[in-house]
Design a protein around this nucleic acid. Structure first.
Lengths: 200, 200
DNA sequence: TGCTTCTGATGACAATTGTCACATCAAAGC
DNA sequence: GCTTTGATGTGACAATTGTCATCAGAAGCA
């Protein structure tokens, strides 16, 4: 009997996943949380064998959660739910210690299969997804990423410079570099591409 | 026994919803589709009483699907899954003929409840959601929306003008107006706000 | 007919963005 | 000590964006 915790901010989806997994006689959902923070509390008391987590969540995202879980509860397996377009998250989640990735686009049988493999000690990732993640390497430096992130929030160069304790010229250079690396038209395009890829 | 079709592009979520709904003895999922187009085909042959649909999907989104379903199969009830932040979709979905809205953030019991009410002929929407949709009226004209949409795709003024068969000056005016209406800093900010609200 | 409203366009110009050559400085390596 | 590298900044300038006053044409109305 594998004990599972589900971390997903949308209650409806979370309940549905719970229903799906509880259909399996060898699985049992022992905890549910809407974000990484709450999850950490529940994990301490419910001791799941494996957590199934989304990435984009309020307060603490799935990658940060993975890092914390691997640190505090190294025996707990971490399965990340992601989408094909956001391959940028893969690398970061792997560095954080994730054990497997399940595509939201995948059939549910794949999820059950993945959970079983992970509990046998394997690392699981869709080969195409892995290739895509390797192909789609994030070209942005941390500075460029930050500048681009704030640009995406609508901040002007001057405001970004202030926020990052840099001069306008440097910010403009970073953004220009980011635009070039992403082969984008302008800031809007660069933000769109980077967000699409999961690089922001 | 209420026959339901689920339309949701993420297979895992779709299967999970199917598992959740099939737990109810009075409900039965008779069809599943990943987008509006496929859904229309399946609906014709499976004759569900109600469809549960997401909005953001490839090929044909949930609002377009609602319109088509209400036109071709006026007796089929339409329940839309949405999120609190995207209230901009509410009005458009209502105009298209949607019968109810269920928040992804809502507990699953609310979904079951909603389905029962809708089958009794009621229109269902969370009061807070309705208020938010009324409060958050989309201020953009169709022209502004289009210009802003293309700006968000990274197109420059000249390219947008070409696409919309307008002059650059007019496009700049539309975008400037949109920026003003949304109280945004610049194009990036305006795109961010409008997307967040479901106005694009 | 004259007036008003609506839509799209023009022009001017300030502000901002994007690019690139170049400079400076500190740290690391030989 | 000298050279290289990486990070940050400068300056110049072209390109683009954003704002606003104004105009023109068409449609509707008294």
């Amino acid at each position: 009997m594998t004990k599972i915790a589900i971390i997903e901010d949308q209650a409806l989806v979370r309940a549905a996943l719970c229903a799906l997994l509880n259909l399996e006689s060898k699985l049992k959902v022992v905890a549910q949380a809407e974000n990484g923070k709450h999850a950490l509390e529940l994990i301490a008391t419910n001791t799941p064998d494996l957590i199934l987590t989304d990435i984009e969540m309020p307060e603490m995202n799935g990658i940060e959660l993975t890092r914390e879980v691997k640190e505090k509860f190294p025996n707990i397996r971490v399965v990340i739910m992601t989408t094909f377009s956001r391959t940028g998250y893969i690398r970061r989640a792997m560095e954080a210690g994730a054990d497997a990735f399940i595509l939201k686009e995948a059939p549910s049988t794949y999820l059950i299969d993945t959970i079983q493999k992970v509990m046998l000690g394997k690392k699981v990732i869709d080969p195409e997804l892995a290739l895509s993640a390797l192909d789609d390497l994030d070209p942005l430096t941390e500075k460029e990423r930050k500048a681009l992130y704030f640009a995406g929030q609508g901040l002007k160069t001057k405001e970004i410079a202030k926020k990052l304790f840099l001069t306008e010229g440097t910010v403009r250079n970073y953004l220009s570099e980011a635009i070039s690396k992403l082969n984008a038209s302008n800031r809007i395009d660069a933000v769109r591409i980077a967000q699409q890829k999961g690089w922001l």
